[in-house]
Amino acid sequence: MKKRNITGALALGAAATMVLAGCSASSDDTSAEGGLDNGDQQDLTIAVFNGWDEGIAASELWKAILEEKGYSVELEYADVAPVYQGLSDDDYDVVLDTWLPITHADYIAEYGDEMVDLGAWNEEAKLTIAVNEDAPIDSLDELAENADLFDNRLVGIEPGSGLNRVTEEVVIPGYGLEDMDYLTSSTPAMLAELTAATEAGENIAVTLWSPHWAYDAFPIKNLEDPEGALGDVEGIHSFGGKSFESNFPTLAGWLTEFKMDSELLYSLENVMFNADEDIEDYSPIVEQWISENQEWVDSLTS
């Protein structure tokens, strides 16, 4: 499995041309003022959470779609907290990876009045604690008494993530896991630990979420959560900055109508991330995937 340095990633879009919404691209459809004939500004900055693959995939997809329509798109990778601060200040235009009503609720409570909720594009999201498929336990309420079988470790992701907050504040005290070593670093580091344990045939417990391509790449299973500590199924929302709807009225409409089920998302994530080599430019992969799903992609801006 490929490892990625997400923090260092920066995808830059090239300016092309645009026609009225619902029409095909043309070289004569960028206005003299630098905007697009559909009423949107040409330059767009999409914030992308470090390590959140579903958000990376959705952002790369929309980058490719919008550049074909004349937008100049920049993807800026950052940790969760700075993204919401930046959206509220119009430093970013939009983020496509807000989980509600649980994971990112604190940030929406703090910054929500300065942002716009464009709705959920996937409603099958779930926070999980996953273990290797042949692990001798099936439920979180069995983990504490079997902690030694997992080297007394629970491997987490970014310290600033909502998943980390829920794990620290609800899961660990709720299931008596205080004596386990809870390791936080980054999603790539967690996946590296998962890879190493899988290859060695060892037990491992990690914080994870669905949808994620790891469920196709590794023999893993979710531990049951009888206490409901990880919450219910969530929606993945797009959130625009405070000026997004006025700066991008057409794109705001497209994103409001945007829907992508988990199976389709898995297929995009798998071709992007589940590869042996280190990939720095996803554009050719995404363009190939678009060509294989052209009718659905065209419907996003029809």
Rank of each mutant, 00 (worst) to 15 (best):
T98K: 02
A16R: 13
T30E: 12
A252S: 09
H237Y: 02
V166C: 11
G201P: 03
E145L: 04
G241T: 07
I137G: 00
I290Q: 00
Y215Q: 09
W289G: 09
M180F: 01
L264R: 14
W296Q: 08
M190H: 06
S262D: 03
L255K: 04
N270R: 10
L12F: 12
A144Y: 03
G112I: 08
L223T: 03
D281L: 11
E33H: 15
A21H: 09
G119M: 03
A252D: 04
L149F: 04
L61I: 00
A205T: 00
D113H: 12
G176S: 03
D134C: 05
I172E: 02
S88H: 05
Y107G: 14
G231H: 10
S243C: 08
A21Y: 07
E292H: 06
I204C: 02
F239V: 06
E224N: 14
L12E: 11
E123C: 14
A217M: 03
G22W: 07
N132W: 12
S283H: 12
I172R: 00
N164L: 07
D141K: 00
H212T: 10
L20E: 13
P173T: 10
N222M: 13
A109Q: 15
W289A: 09
T250G: 09
E202D: 11
D28G: 15
S72Q: 13
N270I: 07
L96F: 05
S267W: 08
T103C: 05
D91E: 15
A197G: 00
G22T: 05
M1N: 14
W254P: 09
G228S: 04
L10M: 15
I108D: 01
D216L: 15
V94R: 09
P211W: 01
F239E: 06
I236K: 03
A192F: 09
A47I: 00
A21L: 08
Y266H: 07
P219V: 04
W62G: 01
E224M: 11
R4T: 13
T128R: 14
H237L: 01
V73Y: 03
E54M: 10
G13P: 05
Y266I: 03
F218Q: 07
G86Q: 11
S72N: 12
W213E: 02
G162K: 04
N146W: 00
D53G: 11
I204K: 02
E114C: 15
N38I: 09
A32L: 12
A15L: 15
L10N: 12
G119C: 04
E74A: 15
S26W: 10
V233A: 13
N50G: 07
E133S: 08
Q294P: 06
E158L: 11
S27A: 14
A120W: 07
V171S: 06
N146M: 01
A32F: 12
P159M: 07
N152M: 08
L183A: 08
T301P: 10
E67H: 07
A125Q: 06
P101F: 14
T45K: 14
K63F: 06
L255T: 05
P219K: 03
M115A: 09
P211H: 01
L149T: 05
L100E: 11
I129E: 01
E142N: 02
L10T: 13
A15F: 15
W52N: 10
G35D: 13
G160V: 04
S238D: 11
L154V: 09
T98A: 08
D216E: 15
E227Y: 14
E68I: 06
I172P: 00
